[in-house]
């Protein structure tokens, strides 16, 4: 009963936020709606007892990625100059509608095929059995950590490598832009 009430409230927040993202003409307001939507999703994760996932959702998406969005919007000043009447790419909107509709059909199809309580829908759509294992008595974080550092260690290391490459790339890009601009920041150095 409590689950249903919480789900309805969270669902309303998710949908309202999602609607706000596409409706608001001001990018900052759109970003704020996105945060609301992320929060609703986090609450839905919590009802499913996926506490860790919920918190990661908040820390990574709401706490880091949208902050980055806002930084870009604020510092580049795109908040005023954007003309929303013009399509940047020809046919972008109609194609968006088509693919959005297809995605919706796919999701609803999966939902109806699976029926109450079964996962036949997932099988029908992907042809694969569900790989989700039942949770045992240990805490979720323990299981997640063990899985990440044993079964999926290669993927984990590859992701770490990817991030390192991205960081080094960013440093190189900034560095090559000209050392003259940077030297003024040097502490203890008086500029003649």
């Amino acid at each position: 009963m409590v689950d249903v009430i919480v789900f309805l409230i969270a669902g309303a927040i998710v949908l309202g936020g999602a609607l706000g993202v596409i409706v608001s003409s001001n990018p900052v307001h759109a970003a704020l709606s996105l945060i609301a939507s992320f929060f609703g999703v986090a609450v839905i994760f919590i009802i499913q007892e996926a506490h860790f996932l919920a918190l990661v959702q908040v820390v990574v998406y709401a706490g880091a990625i949208v902050v980055l969005f806002l930084f870009v919007i604020m510092l580049l000043g795109v908040d005023t100059s954007e003309n929303l009447r013009v399509d940047p790419l020809v046919g972008q909107r109609s194609l968006g509608l088509v693919f959005g509709g297809l995605l919706l059909a796919l999701t609803l199809g999966g939902l109806f095929l699976s029926g109450p309580g079964g996962d036949e829908g997932a099988v029908a759509l992907t042809g694969q059995e569900s790989v989700v294992r039942p949770i045992d008595d240990r805490s979720q974080i323990e299981q997640l950590g063990e899985d990440l550092f044993s079964r999926n260690i290669l993927a984990f290391q590859a992701t770490a490598l990817l991030l390192t490459i991205a960081t080094v790339g960013a440093v190189v890009l900034v560095h090559n832009r000209g050392a003259e601009d940077l030297v003024i920041d040097e502490p203890g150095l008086s500029v003649e």
């Binding site: 918190l55 990661v56 908040v58 820390v59 709401a62 706490g63 902050v67 806002l70 974080i141």
Partner: peptide, 23 residues
């Protein structure tokens, strides 16, 4: 069960108030 992470999440959300106020 994820108490300490909740603290980290909230401290990263605290930025929004300051950032949006300034902007």
């Amino acid at each position: 069960p994820v108490g300490v992470l909740f603290f980290l999440a909230m401290s990263s959300l605290g930025i929004y108030g300051i950032m949006l106020a300034g902007w």
